[in-house]
């Protein structure tokens, strides 16, 4: 049976694990669309999920293994 794929691909966006994150800010620094904000002493926030290109730069740079990509 053929499923009907939606035209709009559901993209993966970063999820930040609060138990692992050490709040260093590297993810925000490498984000090519400047869409991550790291509030002091808090887990990063994806400001505009629509702008995210799922490039995984934040995931790859994270030294704390705290970023995973997941579909919305």
């Amino acid at each position: 049976m053929k499923s009907t794929p939606s035209k709009q691909r559901v993209r993966s966006t970063p999820r930040f694990d609060s138990a692992r994150c050490k709040n260093c800010g590297l993810c925000a620094c490498v984000c090519p669309v400047a869409s991550i904000e790291v509030p002091a002493s808090e887990v990063p926030i994806l400001l505009e999920p629509d702008k995210c290109t799922s490039c995984r730069s934040c995931e790859f740079i994270c030294p704390d293994f705290a970023v995973t990509m997941a579909k919305a």
């Binding site: 050490k22 709040n23 260093c24 590297l26 740079i61 994270c62």
Partner: peptide
């Protein structure tokens, strides 16, 4: 430490 590159 926070921001240390060893984890990366």
């Amino acid at each position: 430490c926070p921001g240390c590159g060893l984890g990366t």
